[in-house]
């Protein structure tokens, strides 16, 4: 059995909605081995994104523990979590979330601004990341000059530029047509298989989930394992 990168134990997450308490995750347990590519599927409101937020240190559990790469996230302060995220996690969103005022290269460079790398080193690393996603020739283009698929590739380059161990993808192909979606999923597969990135991907799309090594089904705050075909 390979080394466990992320482990959630008896995690509960409850939100206060007016006077009512809504339990989104209920005593959820999950282990993600290093190098895994996990797809998490489930209906809206089932807790998929909450699970992703907990893994990425964007949210804290009401009960239970979240351990990623040896770091106990539930006990870290907000500023500690910020610093931890900058080096350990790469986020990929459904709507790319690139900064429109920056070129592709400068968007990819953003996470490196939090490091001590020199300006030239940052540009060099951002260029390599863009090269990996096949967009070296689009470095000077602004997001508005790119197609949806290209924007998502830039977002992936931004996610991998600081070489994090874990990539968290929230509906990464939700805004793309089938052809572009498959291109992005194949790119994620390459990152998983050739670059050793561990990937947790939330998706509604069963075809997208087929690109993962395994699929977990999230429903009513708990996970059910289903082995990918």
């Amino acid at each position: 059995m390979s080394e466990i990168l992320a482990r959630l134990e008896d995690v509960c997450r409850t939100y206060q909605k007016g006077r009512e308490k809504v339990e989104v995750l209920h005593q959820l347990n999950l282990e993600v081995p290093k190098g895994d590519f996990v797809a998490i599927m489930g209906p809206s409101g089932s807790g998929k994104t909450t699970l992703l937020n907990l893994l990425g240190g964007l949210d804290k559990p009401t009960a239970g523990t979240v351990n990623v790469g040896g770091a106990e996230l539930s006990s870290m302060s907000n500023s500690q979590l910020s610093r931890w995220r900058s080096t350990n996690i790469g986020f990929i969103f459904q709507f790319y979330n690139l900064l429109p005022v920056l070129t592709a290269l400068r968007n990819v460079e953003l996470p490196l601004l939090l490091t001590d790398f020199s300006s030239s080193e940052r540009v060099k690393r951002a260029s390599i990341a863009l090269d990996i996603v096949g967009l070296a020739d689009r470095a000077r283009h602004y997001p508005r000059e790119l197609s949806g698929g290209e924007e998502q590739r830039v977002a992936i380059a931004r996610a991998i530029v600081s070489d994090p161990a874990l990539l968290l993808c929230d509906e990464p192909t939700g805004d793309l047509d089938r052809e572009k979606a498959d291109e992005i999923l194949r790119l994620l597969q390459v990152l998983n298989r050739e670059h050793g990135k561990t990937i947790v991907m939330v998706t509604h799309d069963a075809q997208a989930a087929e690109f993962a090594n395994r699929t977990l089904h999230c429903d009513k705050g708990t996970l059910e394992a289903r082995v990918a075909a």
Binding site: G56, S79, S82, F91, L110, P111, L114
Partner: peptide, 16 residues
């Protein structure tokens, strides 16, 4: 607002 949230997601601290 969403861009600032993205910066924070990437690891920019509240103070930054």
């Amino acid at each position: 607002i969403s861009e600032l949230a993205v910066l924070k997601t990437l690891g920019f601290t509240d103070r930054s």
